[in-house]
Amino acid sequence: MDVQSIDQLAQRLASLVPPGLAQARNDLEVNFRDVLAQGLRRLDLVTREEFDVQLQLLARTRARIDELEQRIADLEASQGARGH
């Protein structure tokens, strides 16, 4: 989540404060922004780019596992044919 998204969310939350509390609204918006940013940092999220790299690595790993499983099945089949 980028800074602009955090700002927009903080503004939306602050807009829920009654209009008569204008100063409180501004203070709350600043506090909302800080709390949201801190919370997101604690979540230890990855970027979309990092996620995509890991997704590609997982796809390559899955393909390699499928290939190795097929090789094992072929070896077992040929071993079974020799044993009979």
Rank of each mutant, 00 (worst) to 15 (best):
31 N>C: 07
43 L>H: 06
58 L>G: 11
52 D>N: 11
54 Q>R: 14
74 D>I: 00
66 D>F: 09
44 D>T: 04
25 R>G: 01
39 G>M: 10
66 D>W: 08
62 R>T: 08
74 D>Y: 01
6 I>Y: 00
23 Q>G: 10
12 R>Y: 07
57 L>W: 10
38 Q>N: 12
8 Q>W: 02
24 A>D: 14
18 P>C: 06
28 L>Y: 07
57 L>T: 07
47 T>N: 07
75 L>W: 03
29 E>N: 12
2 D>W: 02
47 T>D: 01
65 I>S: 09
10 A>K: 11
20 G>I: 05
51 F>E: 04
34 D>N: 14
36 L>P: 00
62 R>H: 13
71 R>T: 14
81 A>M: 12
11 Q>F: 09
76 E>R: 13
32 F>A: 04
23 Q>F: 13
49 E>G: 09
75 L>P: 08
24 A>V: 12
1 M>R: 11
82 R>Y: 00
44 D>S: 13
15 S>K: 14
73 A>H: 07
27 D>Q: 10
81 A>G: 09
44 D>I: 02
55 L>E: 04
64 R>L: 08
20 G>E: 04
66 D>E: 01
46 V>E: 03
47 T>W: 02
9 L>W: 10
2 D>C: 06
56 Q>W: 05
66 D>H: 14
72 I>D: 13
48 R>C: 07
35 V>Q: 02
44 D>M: 09
15 S>I: 03
5 S>Y: 05
53 V>L: 10
66 D>Q: 15
23 Q>H: 13
36 L>A: 00
84 H>Q: 15
24 A>K: 09
5 S>F: 00
81 A>R: 14
22 A>T: 05
74 D>E: 15
31 N>Y: 04
34 D>A: 15
78 S>R: 15
60 R>V: 07
21 L>T: 08
31 N>F: 08
25 R>H: 00
44 D>K: 05
34 D>C: 05
72 I>C: 05
19 P>M: 10
43 L>E: 04
69 E>T: 12
83 G>L: 13
82 R>C: 08
5 S>R: 02
20 G>P: 03
15 S>M: 03
28 L>K: 07
27 D>W: 07
49 E>R: 11
57 L>F: 10
78 S>C: 08
68 L>V: 03
39 G>R: 00
8 Q>V: 07
63 A>Q: 15
67 E>D: 00
70 Q>Y: 09
20 G>Y: 01
12 R>V: 03
49 E>D: 07
8 Q>N: 14
80 G>M: 09
33 R>I: 04
46 V>K: 10
26 N>V: 15
17 V>S: 02
34 D>G: 09
29 E>Y: 02
39 G>P: 02
1 M>E: 06
49 E>M: 11
15 S>C: 10
80 G>L: 10
6 I>N: 00
16 L>F: 00
58 L>R: 15
24 A>E: 11
77 A>S: 14
28 L>H: 08
18 P>A: 15
68 L>K: 14
32 F>D: 01
50 E>S: 06
58 L>T: 12
43 L>C: 13
22 A>R: 01
13 L>K: 00
51 F>R: 09
31 N>V: 03
33 R>F: 15
13 L>P: 08
24 A>Q: 15
22 A>M: 09
39 G>H: 03
57 L>R: 13
28 L>R: 08
25 R>M: 00
46 V>F: 05
29 E>K: 11
19 P>C: 05
26 N>Y: 12
7 D>I: 01
67 E>L: 11
38 Q>R: 03
36 L>H: 02
